[in-house]
Write a protein that binds this DNA or RNA. Sequence first.
DNA 1: CCATAGATTGACT
DNA 2: GTCAATCTATGGA
Length: 206
Amino acid sequence: MSLRFPASRRLRRRFFTRDPITLAMDLLGCALVWKKGDRVLAVRLVEVEAYLGEGEDPASHAWRGRTARNSQMFATGGRLYVYFTYGMHYCMNVVSGKEGQAGAVLLRAAEPLVGEALMERRRGRGGRELTNGPAKLCQAMGIDLRHNGLDLVEGPLGIWPHERPGSIVRTPRIGIRRGRELLLRFHDPVSPYVSHRSQRKPRSEH
DNA sequence: CCATAGATTGACT
DNA sequence: GTCAATCTATGGA
């Protein structure tokens, strides 16, 4: 199997400038590719979550408006929004919508396609533990705050159509309290790399 | 397989 | 001061 990601097929701006829910579903099955010189890392996205704009979604970092941390969520679709959490982890999002219109898609899990050996070195683990969670995926791909604001439409990191899932399952998002009733997590049910806690017991409401 | 505790720092109330 | 869009180790069924 020879995996090539020619510039001609790379996803362009208008793919990303749509609403976060549509973008989330269309990102499933796509390849996230890091290309720099002769080094290539690639994964197939199998689990994502949509986060909506200011005042629309209490779980979204954009809920209470623009701040220094979340400012990339208000940028044009196709940028990368990386945040630091729990004192030690990074998570990455693909920004959706038009400039000024907040929204993003959290990349939660993926299947390794190219560069698995480097991912194993970075993770200190193998198999599905490589990329079956948002912070694990960032660690495997080498993504941190330096990459916040990167444009996926050009430059070393980009997204290519790859292999669409046979079906898409829609569930509550993971690790949030408010906004649980919105079913904004999407995953490919047959992928072994989907993060394990899909049906985790929800934390009590009050 | 499941449940729980601890890690560790920055953003925000 | 509180708590987070998480992960890992550990202990039990």
